[in-house]
Computed example of a mutant assay.
Amino acid sequence: MVGTPPWLTALAHTLPNDLALHGPDWTPPRPGTAPPDKRVVILVGSNSPQWFHATAHAAADAYAATTTMLPGQDHNILWQPQDLVPHLT
């Protein structure tokens, strides 16, 4: 998390919980390993910091994913899950 904003670095202690949700055998996916029958969609808010946009585009390139820009949104859309539904169904 080097180089990330201080507020995000302050959340680093939550990473073990995030990883635990994936189970003991989970490893990060490698580029090009997404199952061919799965569609990968990356969402990024237009109001998100530029580094979010750069990360979203890099991930989309790596996973042959679709990137969708959410106008007027930032990472706080997680507090408005109903606004994510149309993009995830």
Rank of each mutant, 00 (worst) to 15 (best):
V2L: 00
G3I: 07
T4G: 03
P5F: 01
P5H: 06
P6W: 00
P6C: 00
W7H: 08
L8F: 02
L8W: 02
T9R: 06
L11P: 00
A12K: 00
A12P: 00
A12H: 00
H13M: 07
H13V: 09
T14V: 11
T14K: 08
L15F: 09
L15A: 13
N17H: 10
N17L: 12
D18L: 15
L19H: 04
A20M: 06
L21K: 02
L21P: 00
L21H: 01
H22Q: 03
P24L: 05
D25C: 02
D25I: 02
D25A: 06
W26A: 12
W26N: 03
W26G: 02
P28Q: 02
P28M: 02
P29V: 05
P29E: 08
P31K: 04
G32R: 09
G32H: 06
T33Q: 13
P35D: 10
P35V: 05
P36W: 04
P36E: 14
D37W: 09
V41L: 11
V41Q: 10
I42M: 12
G45S: 11
S46W: 10
P49R: 00
Q50L: 11
W51A: 13
W51M: 12
F52E: 09
F52W: 08
F52D: 09
T55N: 15
A56L: 08
A59T: 11
Y63M: 07
A64R: 12
A65R: 05
A65G: 08
T66H: 13
T67G: 05
M69Y: 09
M69L: 14
L70T: 01
P71D: 15
P71G: 09
Q73I: 05
Q73G: 04
D74F: 02
D74N: 15
H75R: 08
I77D: 14
L78W: 07
W79D: 14
Q80G: 06
Q82Y: 07
Q82P: 03
D83A: 10
P86A: 07
P86I: 01
P86C: 03
P86N: 04
H87T: 10
H87D: 13
T89K: 11
T89H: 13
